[in-house]
Nucleic acid binder design. Structure first.
Lengths: 131, 131
DNA sequence: GTTGAACCTAAAGTAACTTGAGGATGCATG
DNA sequence: CATGCATCCTCAAGTTACTTTAGGTTCAAC
C-alpha cells in the first residue's frame, strides 16, 4: 500500500494529476486509510504508468480509456499487440520529424556562426526560414 | 500577397489557429483587401513557420513571443544561436525518451508474440509494466 | 447573376491539467 | 503528551492553446 505522493513519484507525475485521472474515471477509486488518505497497490501503479506512457506520445485520454477497457475485458493479445504496433509507428514518425527539425536548426546555427557572426553583417536567418 | 487559407496550407496549420495567433499578438495585424479579407506576405509566412516549428517541440507561446521580440529588436546573432542550441538539446532529449519508449513497447509486443499468443495462456503484459 | 467555396467577427466550448482556499491527518521530536 | 510541519483532503476556479459554432459577407467561376 503506497500513498498518493509515493505513487506520483514512481509514475513521474504530480499528485493533482492522479486525483484528476480518478475524477475522469481513468483510475479506479482507490482504497482509503482510516483518516481518508488514498492507498494504492501495485496494480494501480501499473495502470498509471501505462497511462503516462500513452500520454508521452500524446494519446488523448479517451483513447487510453478505450485501451484500458480492452484490457479489462480480457480481449485476446492480438488486439493489444496491434495497438502497441500502431503506437510504435506513431513514435517512429515523431522521431523522424524531430530529427529533421534538429537538422534544420543545425543549418541555422551554422549559417550564423560561419556567416553574419564572422563578418558582422546583418542576420537573415528568419527570412530564410520561409525559403 | 496570399490568403489566410493559402498561408495555413503552407505553414501546415488551420485557419482559426492563424486568427488565434493574431488575437494573442503572436502574428501582426496583416494587410487587408478591399472586402476585408486578410492578405499576407512572405515575411508573415516566415514568422508563422517559425512559430509552428517552435510549437512542434512544445515551446509555450510566451517563450515564442520572447524569441520573436528578440528578433524584432535586432539582437546580435549570438543570442539567436544560443536559443537554437538550447532547443536542439531539448529535441535530442525528446528523441531519446521516444526511442526508449519504443524499445519498451517492442519488448511488450515480443512478449505476447512468443509467449501467450503461442501457448494461449493468459497475458500478463500490463502487470509487467510496473516491473 | 447566382451559387458555392472561402472569408469575416464574436462568443462559447474543449482537453488536460494546474492553482488556490481552507482545513484534516500523520508522524517524528522535545 | 503536544506541537510542528509535511502530506493529505475536497471543491472550485484558472490556464493554455486551440477548436467549434453561429450568423453573416466576399470572391471567383460559370
Amino acid at each position: 500500500m503506497i500513498s498518493i505522493g509515493e505513487l506520483a513519484k514512481r509514475a513521474q507525475c504530480t499528485v493533482p494529476t492522479i486525483r484528476y485521472y480518478e475524477s475522469v474515471g481513468l483510475l479506479p477509486q482507490p482504497q482509503r486509510r482510516e483518516g481518508g488518505h488514498r492507498a494504492y497497490n501495485r496494480k494501480d501503479l501499473a495502470r498509471l504508468i501505462l497511462i503516462r506512457r500513452c500520454r508521452d506520445i500524446d494519446m488523448p485520454l479517451d483513447k487510453i480509456k478505450e485501451l484500458l477497457t480492452l484490457e479489462a475485458n480480457g480481449k485476446p493479445c492480438q488486439e493489444t499487440v496491434d495497438f502497441f504496433s500502431v503506437q510504435r509507428n506513431a513514435i517512429k514518425a515523431r522521431i523522424q520529424a524531430l530529427q529533421e527539425l534538429d537538422f534544420t536548426l543545425s543549418l541555422y546555427v551554422e549559417n550564423c556562426q560561419s556567416g553574419c557572426m564572422q563578418n558582422k553583417a546583418p542576420c537573415h536567418i528568419y527570412d530564410e526560414i520561409a525559403q
